[in-house]
Design a binder for these strands. Structure first.
Length: 677
DNA sequence: GGACTTTATCTTTCG
DNA sequence: GATAAAGTCC
């Protein structure tokens, strides 16, 4: 394996804290992989004592696969390669005795959280419980948790009536989680961190266990993750963090790129190694990317260079309207495919928002161009998957009220909302779970015999399944699907044959996944039912879902494109209001939009196209669009515009109008609400 | 459980 | 304004 001098330095620096500033396409993963191998083969480190943390399951899996080229599977299994959340979970599981709850805890995902918040807020007449407000409350609570504020602290820090109220909800929320033995995603980071802070013995154990820590995508860490890192690396500060401040595009999710700077303060002996040699993009693409990002304020200077050929001019394609823009892209792709013999799969179309893909799809279908939209983790939010997982959750922990509520009448057992509400009231009053109440339904007089019998039948069935725990997880799942005649139910409630087929396919995917989990793959041990559900909640299913590898044009958001590369890249909707997005303009958050653009540009290996259109329909009105300010930040001589550019002045006028409209909409919305009250 | 009406969304979304 | 999801009514 050939390494350049920066890469070599990054790998061989092992005594002390090390930050690798890895520019886009500079061989970041390669360095992490080789450093792990170096630590094992040339230093005192054993595989057991090395931990690599990534942000997504996907990259954790990729890292394992790439390591398997150099190490044997037994050795790889010993290295902890996981996401922050899985690592936190691991610590919690091992230290469960030092914690307040017991080992059969369940994990709450975002939807569960919202449901719980709804329940809490519903009782309180003074707080709105529409989904929007609930989501805001959830974000607030998450923020507090990640700052390690207790509900009490949050209340004392709250500086408005509303915040005080939310702090109170936070307390209720936390109490409920505690009582029900439930953790949310933030807990997975915060609980271990607090435990390590509090308990010296446990801290020492983990610092010894993780004697070398590597963190990928370091610029994406948030406050609590940074605290956890500090706890784990306290003794000798031997670690390697890899990041790129220019690719920080998740600040809206709590990521704190300033952690890069904090590192220098917290670890004065920090060695910063820059990797600036780009092996991906043509010289011109790199020049353009550098020139764009130089408009951001930088604390750590870095400039990418490339030895590859300079490459073609970067084309700016302008359409009359959105459809015309899409048509021009389709034409370009057809041309590239037919004349230049470029494969469809080597082309990517990147956009700011998912909504932009719609017209694109329409045109691509018309042009007969195969495409693939990278679907996020929507698999898990599919109703059919949620249903089945809820069944499993009830089997593991019958007192899981949310799962219970979801399945009691799916498929229909003729147990309606009225009955369910009665059950909920009883459960509240007697401080029992819905399952416990239903199990003792005979004692309740307010229900008809018929209803009682229906509930009894359901409870007996659950108990029966619960007793099957000696069977394999996948068998249990199959029995459930069979018993409740789920496929029949789906074909009944769904109208479109396509939808039915899709849903049933999803069930089969889930079933296959269970079977794989059972056998364990090269990196995995066989799992229990409860472990599988945990993995599902952590969305850790990537290696088992078939990848669509056929020759298709790739459509995805700029965010989703991070970490990938394509020979030909189209960045569409390059106009003011879309990129940068009007909300970001309004909130004065241009730098992150610029980084997002930078990420997009640096995905391209050989050819780069910017496209936009002059006119688009937004919020029902025809809007005149002007080219993105970012296009004017690129060197003129490297761009080739295929049409007349409207003057910047008219651009600003339009932008003002658009902001006005945005505000009017907001006011109208509030007005509507007022009228109701 | 289906037909109809209302409401929300128009920025990104990991675990 | 267009669309999809959620809510309401029978």
């Amino acid at each position: 394996m050939s390494l350049n001098s920066a890469q070599k330095k990054a790998i061989e620096f092992i005594n002390g804290p090390c930050l690798i500033l890895a520019g886009a396409g500079s061989g970041k993963t390669k360095v992490i992989i080789n450093k792990i191998i170096y630590l094992i083969n040339h230093c005192k480190y054993k595989a057991d004592n090395i931990t690599a943390v990534t942000f997504t399951n996907k990259s954790a899996h990729e890292m394992r696969v790439r390591l398997s080229e150099y190490l044997n599977v037994l050795e790889i299994k010993k290295i902890i390669i996981s996401t922050f959340h899985s690592l936190g979970l691991e610590i919690i599981k091992q230290e469960i005795n030092a914690l307040k709850f017991n080992s059969n805890f369940t994990l709450f995902d975002e939807k569960d959280q919202i449901m719980l918040l709804k329940k809490i807020c519903h009782k309180d007449k003074n707080i709105e419980d529409d989904i929007q407000s609930l989501k805001k409350i959830n974000i607030m609570i998450s923020y507090w948790k990640n700052q390690f504020y207790t509900p009490l602290q949050a209340e004392s820090l709250a500086n408005s009536h509303l915040e005080k109220k939310i702090a109170y909800i936070y307390k209720k929320y936390n109490d409920y989680l505690c009582e029900s033995n439930i953790l949310d995603f933030d807990d997975l980071i915060c609980i271990p961190t607090l435990l390590l802070k509090k308990n010296q013995k446990i801290q020492h154990y983990w610092q010894k266990k993780i004697s070398y820590l590597l963190v990928d995508e370091y610029q994406d860490t948030n406050n609590s993750q940074y605290e956890l890192i500090k706890m784990l690396t306290k003794i000798d500060s031997n670690f390697t963090f890899v990041g790129d401040d220019d690719q920080s595009i998740y600040s809206w999710r709590g990521a704190n790129p300033e952690n890069l700077l904090l590192l220098k303060k917290d670890f004065p002996s920090l060695k910063v190694i820059k990797m600036e040699h780009n092996y991906r993009s043509s010289g011109r693409i790199l020049k353009v990317a550098n020139s764009l990002i130089s408009n951001n304020i930088h604390f750590l200077k870095k400039k990418l260079f490339s030895n590859l050929e300079y490459g073609d001019l970067i084309k700016v394609i302008v359409g009359k309207n959105e459809e015309n823009e899409a048509e021009k892209i389709a034409k370009k792709i057809l041309y590239q495919h037919a004349i230049k013999k470029i494969k469809y799969q080597d082309c990517a179309i990147l956009y700011r928002g998912n909504y932009q893909s719609k017209i694109l799809e329409k045109v691509l279908i018309k042009a007969n161009i195969p495409y693939n939209i990278s679907e996020n983790s929507s698999f898990f939010s599919r109703p059919e998957i949620k249903d089945l997982i809820s069944y499993i959750r009830v089997i593991i922990n019958p007192n899981d009220n949310y799962a219970f509520m979801r399945i009691i009448n799916v498929p229909s057992r003729k147990i309606g909302l009225i009955t369910l509400n009665k059950l909920i009231q009883w459960a509240d009053k007697e401080n029992k779970s819905l399952f416990q109440i239903s199990d003792d339904i005979e004692a309740k007089n307010l229900l008809t015999e018929r209803t009682k019998n229906k509930i009894k039948k359901f409870i007996i069935w659950i108990k029966k399944i619960t007793q099957l725990s000696y069977l394999q997880p996948s068998d249990i799942l199959d029995i459930i699907i069979n018993d409740i005649k789920y496929e029949m139910w789906l074909s009944k409630i769904l109208k479109e044959p396509n939808q039915i087929k899709n849903s049933i396919d999803n069930i089969h995917t889930l079933s296959t996944w269970f079977k794989n989990m059972l056998q364990g793959d090269e990196f995995e041990q066989p799992m229990t039912l409860s472990q599988i559900v945990t993995r599902m909640t952590l969305r850790d299913i990537s290696n088992n879902i078939k990848k669509n590898k056929r020759d298709k044009v790739q459509l995805m958001t700029l965010h989703a494109s991070k970490g990938l590369e394509f020979p030909v890249v189209f960045m569409i909707g390059m106009c003011e209001g879309i990129l940068p997005n009007h909300k970001s303009i309004y909130h004065n958050n241009i730098e992150e939009e610029r980084r997002l653009t930078y990420v997009g540009i640096t995905r391209a290996k050989k050819q780069l196209f910017f496209t936009y259109c002059c006119q688009r329909i937004q919020y029902g009105q025809i809007m005149h669009m002007s080219p993105s300010r970012f296009l004017f930040e690129l060197p003129k001589e490297d761009l080739h515009w295929n049409t007349y550019i409207s003057s910047v002045k008219s651009l600003q006028k339009i932008e003002k109008n658009k902001l006005k409209i945005y505000h009017i909409r907001k006011i109208l919305k509030q007005y509507k609400k007022l009228k109701y009250e």
